[in-house]
Design a binder for these strands. Structure first.
Lengths: 125, 125, 125, 125
DNA sequence: GTGGTCTAGACCACA
DNA sequence: GTGGTCTAGACCACC
């Protein structure tokens, strides 16, 4: 499904959050689709179930998934995600990243092209 | 010069790196300009010099500044910055952020507007 | 009659208890009125009868309903409800909630207004 | 400092969150005051440090405390807590509780008295 | 079987 | 010394 860098300074559970978030955002995981169970994913990735738990819990509190005892974890319909706080963060982040991209030599055309590329087709991560 | 958020969970040295990066990117700190000495900045911010040192080392390895023994640290001319590695990271980051922004409901016009805003004037952080 | 949130992390039987409690408190279900049978409600809500049963048992032990073998479950007359234990819990809960509301910035006038609003008309849940 | 019910069906970490929240709300723990360290509290309560961690983390995400690596955990100044989401929840909760209190026989005067009691002096939990 | 909690004990990063 | 992460393995509640 995907790979984790066990050596990265970024915590495993955070990498997981990021990866799963991407899969949800890019509609690879559809609304109300069931995620692999904690134990299942733990076995697949040879990672401790607790770590997966932590990631799932984080995703739930971020509003990306919902978990039901005894049933599993599922993708939260995006229509219900109306996180103004997140949007504000994303705008700030975009501004910084634009400035950095320009500083590193990218033209605004190049950046815009990237945007339309993402807008059009799905991106593989 | 700038403020650090002692209450942020982001390590102080990392905040420093980020702030200085922004100052360089937004051309507040000009090419070849001398940065404040480690001791000086440490005193100004009432922070341990080790923490400043760590930030400067990080900035150097990222290619934003260069250090001359016994003379100090200086802003690396952007024309000479050809950090393909950084550029690749920024591109990846942009793609992710675009997808997330769209997922959260931003239109591509809105994003493009933000880009041109940054492109035109300087951004206040 | 009402809806259950299959996506909530709150167990279904607990949601049921809460909903029925609200209906009784707000006098939608009148004194000595017969509640729907376990099977009936189970079919309506497409939920396992065991879950309904569990909710009814809980409501009975809380003193809100009484069950007659072979006849069904009925709303307990509020005049006969003299659950000092529940009352004590509610008082404690109110004190906590008042403190929290004030901490979050509500004025006591605002809280009192809410009280009178509830006291006057029925509340829609 | 306080007691936990190890036998309760409410998770220990959640009890901890609730207790500490109360201490903060009732101003027993003042702004920017340092909380006991994870290990310290764990030893005091003879509870696993991980459980304390979980509680602290939850409190942080709720905006009641902030944690700094290598320094400790501290009470978040209430002025910075502007959680509209929390406020909305509290309002809903108040309405339900008012209805329940009245149903159980409390007069609105009695409830108002409780409110002013809380408003005036601090409440001991 | 599923999510969730808890313990015991190790190790890392930050100040 | 502090918060934070991770593992291994146990147990509970819900469905």
């Amino acid at each position: 499904m995907f790979e984790l860098d066990i050596r990265s300074r970024m915590p495993i559970y955070e990498q997981l959050v990021e990866k799963l978030k991407q899969l949800i955002i890019n509609d690879v995981l559809k609304e109300d689709e069931k995620l692999p169970s904690v134990r299942e994913l733990a076995q697949q990735l040879t990672i401790n179930p607790n770590t997966i738990q932590k990631a799932y819990r984080e995703l739930e509190s971020l509003g990306y998934i919902y978990s039901l005892k005894g049933k599993g974890s599922f993708v939260h319909p995006s229509s219900k995600v109306d996180n103004q706080e997140e949007l504000k963060k994303v705008r700030e982040e975009l501004k910084k990243l634009f400035a950095e991209a320009i500083y590193l030599g990218m033209s605004s055309e190049e950046i815009a092209a990237l945007l339309h590329e993402v807008e059009g087709g799905k991106v593989d991560d």
